[in-house]
């Protein structure tokens, strides 16, 4: 029997046998099914978690069940500020905005410094020999170890948080950009030279675009570290934002708010990663127009 093959929209071939195909489709062929597939495990976890605590909490009252977390989260988001009786009635959006702004600021500083530095280290031997050793020397110091330094220099302020975030994002951005710039195909550089490109043209029109895939990898890793850094910094060095709320809620025994805060951080991290992915898809569209011959 001749096995006919046809092209799926993603370019992979699939068998035209009806049984095989419908099974494949159930799990991967359309977006709605993908979302359902992705939701199964989280829903199971939530249900088990809920059923495990018939009195609204687990572990002797320490861990609230999802319904209580949801309620606390709802109040935190939509509640009105009730004269200080419940600090977690309303104010969620402010916390989100404080933290997000700091992440964006620190991320921006790291990107503006990190990408050009990485390109230079990857491209120029002089930069590689002078700047790279310093970065390798400082990199093993965890950003948490910089906290006292940051507070001493910047005080209890947003700048301290931004400094830590920028530092945390800087390393992966620099290192990945360096890798990208270091491994530009030699013939691409030679081709550009042959066509009359000067040093700047080669950097801007060849090395930078050739490094973009690696740069985006650095940005994604960096952003993850940026969210870690902002929470750590806000727990200790700033008095606002999701990190501050997290620690403060724990301190007053509001585990429902703690978990709502954690979920918020997770969602923000996911959202920001998705935004970078969209940018990457746009900037690297040349990679995805796959061979159709």
């Amino acid at each position: 029997m001749a096995l006919t093959r046809r092209l799926r929209p993603d370019g992979a071939t699939s068998s035209a046998l009806p049984g095989v195909d419908s099974v494949t489709r159930l799990f991967s062929s359309n977006r709605a099914n993908k979302i359902v597939a992705a939701a199964i495990l989280p829903v199971v976890v939530l249900v088990v978690w809920q059923l495990a605590g018939p009195h609204g909490s687990l572990f002797g009252g320490v861990l609230p069940t999802p319904d209580r977390v949801a309620k606390a989260w709802y109040t935190w988001v939509f509640g009105t500020n009730s004269l200080g009786f419940n600090p977690y009635s309303g104010g969620w959006l402010d916390s989100v905005i404080f933290s997000t702004t700091r992440v964006l600021q620190g991320f921006a500083v790291a990107v503006v410094l990190g990408i050009p530095t990485g390109i230079m280290i990857g491209w120029s031997r002089l930069a590689s020999e002078t700047i790279d050793p310093l970065i390798q020397l400082l990199r093993p110091i965890p950003i948490t170890a910089w906290l006292p330094f940051s507070i001493a220099v910047f005080g209890i302020s947003s700048f301290g948080a931004i400094f830590l975030i920028a530092l945390g994002v800087f390393y992966p951005v620099v290192i990945n950009t360096t890798q990208g710039a270091r491994h530009v195909e030699r013939d691409l550089v030679r081709a550009a030279e042959m066509m009359g490109a000067g040093r700047f043209d080669i950097l801007w029109r060849v090395v930078v675009p050739a490094s973009l895939p690696a740069i985006f990898t650095g940005l994604r890793i960096g952003l993850g570290i940026g969210w870690t850094a902002v929470i750590v910094a806000e727990m200790i060095a700033v008095k606002s934002g999701l990190g501050y709320a997290l620690w403060d809620a724990y301190y007053v025994g509001r585990m429902d708010v703690v978990i709502a805060d954690m979920a918020t951080i997770g969602l923000m991290g996911l959202l920001s990663d998705q935004i970078i992915l969209v940018c990457e898809r746009y900037a690297l569209s040349w990679r995805r127009v796959n061979a159709n011959r």
Partner: peptide, 9 residues
């Protein structure tokens, strides 16, 4: 060049 060495982007 042997492998064309075009700029893929």
């Amino acid at each position: 060049f042997q492998e064309a060495a075009l700029f893929p982007w």
